[in-house]
Write a protein that binds this DNA or RNA. Structure first.
Lengths: 144, 144
DNA sequence: CTAGATGCAAAGACTTTGCGCGACC
DNA sequence: GGTCGCGCAAAGTCTTTGCATCTAG
């Protein structure tokens, strides 16, 4: 993996190339992201950045994260879509497939995927994993 | 899997046994859940139930779903926790482990889990899957 | 009867948006 | 000087909560 410094530079260049500006706020947010391996929330990033840049606003953090996600330089780990969904037919932990384009959630029904889910619990190391497993991809509809 | 009718009856009995009441609203919500395999959102369930029970309120739907989730009779498919989290270190799709107790998200670093993620894309059938994969379980901390 | 459930409306939490000011090229 | 980004505050969603009323048991 690219080192943080190299990546920071590359991203600065990328922003520039896209017609965007390289501001103190953006650099600070990038640095915070690169330094934090805990998959921080927006609020956590905000607090972190605020330590060095007290005037920054939460809106700027949101806007910058959206921009970086757009450029595929950070990954938003959002629970599927935006709202809670419920599975009332099968309340047991089981594998799902989630479409990153339209948000649809389907049961993972191929033998191969079910097999993967079945073996997961025995491979979590220190973690006590279940057969609940979300596969992410693009559903047939959204592939056109 | 249990048939919907049997399940509806069992759930009615379960509610009763727990000191709860079997109301028209609850039965309607249960029926809607059992009839819908599309992993509906709260709003969708609400609309569905409303068709047969126009006076029902959204709050009742929320409360009932929470109750059923408590009893482990429906599964809430919530995106990890409640807020957006970001992975700025590795923007490529990769596997994570999510703790259902405390919500912590960790990279899946055991060889076995990475191996599972690596083979997933070739096993999605009609879906075009990626190596993004969320394993759900309980982290070492939360196991005490 | 009486505990428990409902519906309504208000409150909360998180996120997005609109807008005028300020900064960079 | 014009464009783009910033901070602020307001608006928007989705979800939860408080409370008076109603109802299943």
């Amino acid at each position: 993996m690219e080192s943080p410094e190299v990546r920071l530079n590359r991203l600065a260049g990328l922003l520039h190339a896209e017609g965007g500006r390289v501001t103190a706020q953006r650099l600070a947010i990038l640095s915070a992201l690169l330094a934090d391996s805990s998959h921080p929330s927006v609020e956590e990033i905000y607090q972190q950045v605020k330590a060095g840049l007290p005037a920054i606003s939460l809106a700027t953090v949101y806007k910058t994260l959206a921009l970086l996600a757009e450029l595929n330089e950070v990954q938003e780990l959002r629970g599927a879509e935006e709202v809670s969904r419920y599975d009332g037919r099968n309340p047991r932990p089981h594998p799902h497939m989630i479409c990153t384009v339209c948000g649809v959630i389907a049961d993972a029904e191929t033998d191969e995927l079910e097999e993967l889910a079945r073996v997961a619990p025995s491979r979590g190391g220190q973690w006590r994993l279940t057969e609940r497993l979300d596969f992410w991809g693009v559903c047939p509809q959204c592939q056109e």
